[in-house]
């Protein structure tokens, strides 16, 4: 469903250009869930943005549903893949109500039955009708993230890209959202690609996992291998070590280093 073939993405021009993702290749089968982890700034969001067609890639090829994506995507190609952004506040327009935020992708895609679709999408993410006409600042962080997920789901995409979808959520809503994603995957055959720094969240939802560092994909592994600690790259091991909350030894080392 998703295939990246030696994709490189650069920001900036000339001397100031940096390769935020270099030479990335991996594939995700239809209906599968793939997780992307790695240190901050390693290029995870960049990879998602290039799959979503939000930024051009300098080299390589992105294939979705078996077709190579052109630099300018058409409406159907854009509908195929939807993204939930890392920063729910930034991605929701402050002057738009929830209702308007959900109506606009329907309008762009020329889909009808808006009334019904909006009500269903809100229910699916566990928001009540009382939230429908609120502005983003009148919602809690978790409620805003659910709006962002509802907005991605409302055009019924086949691929959903999720950038830290639960990092702003409390554990009870996180459980609801993870259960929702499991259900969507099962019922609709949705293909998922999720970025998270919480390895337990990744292992819960995903079968296969890619590990990034400094813009490169340094290890491809499975959730089972992660859980068993059967990974090889030092960065993966480091992520695994500091995953169990606040790592006192890591903190001591950091203090020492500082």
């Amino acid at each position: 469903m998703i295939r990246l073939d030696r994709v490189t993405v650069r920001y900036g021009h000339g001397r100031n250009a940096i390769a935020a993702a270099s030479d990335i290749s991996f594939a995700v089968a239809p209906g599968a869930a793939f997780g992307l982890v790695g240190e901050s700034g390693s290029g995870k969001s960049t990879v998602l943005r290039s799959i979503a067609g939000l930024i051009p890639h300098a080299e390589g090829q992105v294939q979705l549903g078996g077709a190579a994506m052109p630099p300018q995507r058409n409406r159907a190609q854009r509908r195929l893949v939807q993204m939930v952004f890392q920063d729910p506040y930034g991605s929701l327009h402050p002057n738009q109500t929830v209702d308007q935020a959900l109506a606009s992708p329907l309008r762009i895609q020329g889909l009808d039955g808006g009334e019904q679709r909006i009500a269903t999408a809100l229910r699916e993410v566990g928001l009540g009708p009382e939230h429908r006409f609120r502005f983003p600042h009148q919602l809690s962080g978790g409620q805003r993230q659910r709006v962002a997920i509802a907005r991605a789901l409302i055009v019924a995409p086949r691929i959903l890209l999720l950038d830290e979808p639960t990092s702003a959520l409390d554990v009870s809503v996180q459980a609801e959202i993870l259960n929702l994603l499991v259900r969507l995957r099962r019922e609709r055959g949705l293909t998922l690609l999720m970025v998270s720094h919480d390895l337990a969240v990744i292992a819960h939802l995903c079968d296969r996992v890619g590990v990034m560092q400094h813009g490169a994909l340094v290890e491809l592994t499975s959730s089972d291998a992660l859980a068993a600690g059967a990974v090889t790259h030092p960065h993966t091991l480091e992520l695994l070590r500091s995953n169990a909350g606040y790592d006192m030894r890591g903190a001591e080392a950091a203090r020492f280093e500082a």
Partner: peptide, 14 residues
Amino acid sequence: SALDATIQTQVLAI
């Protein structure tokens, strides 16, 4: 919440 576990640990150490 937007930090990976390693940097999270370092920021908390600060």
